[in-house]
Each structure stands twice: as structure tokens, then as C-alpha cells.
Write a protein that binds this DNA or RNA. Structure first.
Length: 277
DNA sequence: AAGAATGTTACATG
DNA sequence: ACATGTAACATTCT
């Protein structure tokens, strides 16, 4: 579910409620495979009593920087999210990890599909080191994008989804950015012209910033959809131009939006605004 | 009621 | 090394 704007929204909301400075007083684990890097016992032993020094986002990871060099790195995958509850109460159906944070309450990791992962490590670089540039960072210029595209013969959309190429884009924002830039998802990366590279660079940043501004994209009403803390839903869905809009008119030219599967991912585009050649 | 779903990765094949 | 496809993870939603 969550891409850069959704993860950043989650991080911002956790910071806003005062997570930094809190101590993880106790950890409960109800689905062992959520803890990816250590045994559940070692995880509890190492995480309990640690202070959360700061929380930030890298790519689609939430990074909890703890004391003594430890980092708790969480990937929400498709349906992960955090809830903050005052009391332990009756644990919801899909809550797989609970971190007790002193007087702040209980940070509950809710994840219907159970794909989300917690990595507790002293070497955050192992996970974060090989990721591509942050698309909203200073280092990600049109020039850098061009350099990274050079010599690549893959289709542009799967390349945009590759976190080693650029970090944080997912299926929604990749489709939206390509539509905005007028680039067909199957264009060969190295064939993009300078004009197209600039347009794509602008489009990527535009759609991500827009998503951020709206607190993320929430589709539908089910519990598997994105919610930030306190069940806050994102309001970016009405801004989407092509994603899950198959058959509806392109906002630019009224041609019905088409859908195809690329690299096993549903892909939405306008065949008029995004010609193959 | 079958198919799809906002993500990643291991493995196989070319 | 690069590129591409498939299956797997597990459950819910349409």
C-alpha cells in the first residue's frame, strides 16, 4: 500500500505525537515472521529499554534511530500501518507487534496481509545503503535522472518501481508520473529524450509532493487501505488521473484510460497522451 | 465467486 | 552483469 507520501505521512504523524525521546518499555510479538532480522527473543531483549532518538523515512522504510547504535527499520509493504492506543485493551485482529512507549501508550503494528517487516540492526546501511536517490532530495536533479537512465534498456515503468534506481515510488505514483510526463510505460529507458527526462523529473516530484500535501492516497474504505495514525485517511485519491481509472476518460484528451500488466503490476495509461513511439 | 490488490525477493531462464 | 518472468508471502476487497 504505502509509497513515499504515505510512509512520510505516517512518520510525520508519529513525530507529531512526540515519539522521539520515548522509551520502548516493552515489546509484544504475535506474528513471528514480522520480525525479520533477529529471533523474537533477541528482538525483545535488544529493543526493550531503548530510547527512540529520532524517526525518519528513507525510501519506503520508517527508520527508528535508537540508542547504542541500534536501528529499528520497518517496511510496511502492502498493508502495514501503526496505531497508537492509550491502553492495551483487546488486541485487534491484525495487530502483530506492540511496542509499549511509557506514558505515550501502545504503538500497535497493524498489517492484514502480514507482509510488513521489522529489522532491528546495528548496521542500517545493509538495508538502506544500496537504495537509489530520494526523488524529493536535492541530489535528484533532471541531470542525475538522465545519467541513471543512460544505458538502461528496461521499460521505464518497472525501472521507476526499482528501489535501487530511485527510492520511494510505487505503483500509484509511477503511473501518475508517467501520465503527467506523457511517457508510455513501456518506453525503453535509454530512449527518453532530454525533454522527456526533464518532464519525467518534474512529474515525479509533482505527484509525490501532491500526495504528501494530501496526506497520502487512500483507495476504498476497507481496513487494508492506507490509514495513518488515528485512522487518518489520505485525501489524494481524487487527484489521481489514471490509476485504477480504466475505461474512464483521460482528463487531458478524453480517450478512455487503458490498463495493461507490466512486470506483474497493473499499469494504467492513456494511449493518446502516452504514445509508444 | 474468481481475480486483483498501494511491495519485495528468491529463483529460474535467456 | 543485465533483463524478464514466475511464485511466494496472506488476507481482504470488488
Amino acid at each position: 500500500m504505502p509509497e513515499l507520501p504515505e510512509v512520510q505521512t505516517m512518520v510525520d504523524d508519529l513525530n507529531a505525537v512526540g515519539l522521539p525521546g520515548k522509551i520502548i518499555t516493552k515489546a509484544h510479538v504475535y506474528w513471528e515472521r514480522t520480525i525479520a532480522s533477529l529471533s523474537v527473543n533477541d528482538f525483545k531483549g535488544q529493543v526493550q529499554g531503548r530510547i527512540i532518538k529520532r524517526l525518519y523515512r528513507r525510501a519506503k522504510y520508517l527508520v527508528f534511530e535508537l540508542d547504542a547504535g541500534w536501528h529499528l527499520i520497518v517496511h510496511l509493504r502492502m498493508t502495514g500501518r501503526f496505531e497508537l492506543n492509550a491502553r492495551l485493551g483487546s488486541r485487534g485482529n491484525h495487530v502483530h507487534v506492540i511496542l509499549q512507549l511509557g506514558d505515550l501508550g501502545y504503538l500497535m503494528f497493524h498489517d492484514t496481509r502480514k507482509f510488513g517487516r521489522f529489522y532491528l540492526t546495528l548496521s542500517p546501511c545493509c538495508l538502506l545503503g544500496k537504495l537509489g536517490p530520494e526523488p524529493l532530495g536535492k541530489r535528484f536533479s533532471a541531470g542525475v535522472l538522465g545519467e541513471r537512465l543512460a544505458g538502461r534498456r528496461r521499460w521505464i515503468k518497472p525501472l521507476l518501481l526499482d528501489q535501487h534506481f530511485v527510492a520511494g515510488l510505487g505503483n500509484i505514483y509511477a503511473d501518475e508520473a508517467l501520465w503527467r510526463a506523457g511517457i508510455h510505460p513501456m518506453r525503453i529507458a535509454e530512449s527518453l529524450t532530454q525533454t522527456e527526462i526533464k518532464a519525467l523529473h518534474r512529474a515525479v516530484r509533482y505527484v509525490l509532493r501532491q500526495g504528501l500535501r494530501n496526506g497520502g492516497t487512500t483507495l476504498g474504505r476497507g481496513q487494508s487501505n492506507f490509514q495513518s495514525l488515528r485512522h487518518r485517511r489520505g485525501s489524494n485519491a481524487p487527484k489521481l488521473k489514471v490509476f485504477r481509472r480504466t475505461g474512464l476518460p483521460c482528463p487531458r484528451c478524453r480517450q478512455p484510460i487503458e490498463r495493461m500488466v507490466l512486470g506483474q503490476r497493473s499499469t494504467h495509461y492513456c494511449s493518446v497522451c502516452q504514445p509508444v513511439t
